[in-house]
Amino acid sequence: MASLPLIQCFHVAKSYVAGEDILRDANLQILKGEFLFLMGPSGAGKSTFLKMLLGLEAPTRGHILVDGRNIHRLSRKDIPAYRRTVGMVFQDFKLLPRDSVAYNVALPLVAAGRPPGLVRSKVKALLQFVGLEKKAGTPCCRLSGGEQQRVALARAVANDPWILLADEPTGNLDPCASAVVMELMKAVHDRGTTVVVATHDPSLLEHIPEARRVHIHEGVFYEEAEASSTVCASALGGPGWD
């Protein structure tokens, strides 16, 4: 089903402090409709890469194209619309804790100026999708971690993005809640969305065995096959990924 490259990175380098490259010469193509695990130890630059894909950080060198457009050359007024084509889920959920579940899910739709009738029906469908329609009116701070992450997922896909980015989506969840969230991500992927999940937890891979696996090591991307032969023993150390 995967065909055209949706995300293309050419010689991407990123440093927050001059001389300390987090990404060095990272090249990667992600095809439309792919499910990709981005692996790497803590501090490897997974979150940094996802932030660059969302346009929250700019690469120091190199280019990132999404659907053929260089996202760091977008004009100011095109950035919000671009971000609506990319949904993002965080390890710490980033919900508005005092506001209701429905309100949090409605937010990207309202911000995009969708008409109230559509917002209402869309929120209903999204809550049904993540199995939280009974908690629509509950403030998010009264939900369990797993439920909060489901709200965050519903919010991330509210505007039907092309791409879903997830940064350690199960980092704060127990195995059972993690499984539910991963199931939902798979369902989002099955609808044709390109999904990129950053994690350092190899057990997540079991949920989607057919997914593509890319590792970041010393600022460069490696496909798993390459990675296992070149860097597995030396640098990644610790637990393997299979």
């Binding site: 919000p80 971000r83 993002m88 508005l96 937010l107 911000a111 995009a112 505007n159």
Partner: peptide, 16 residues
């Protein structure tokens, strides 16, 4: 800040 940082991520325009 927490609130509008979320809005930035979900693609809300600055005017919103």
């Amino acid at each position: 800040r927490d609130e509008w940082e979320v809005l930035l991520v979900v693609g809300a325009p600055p005017s919103f």
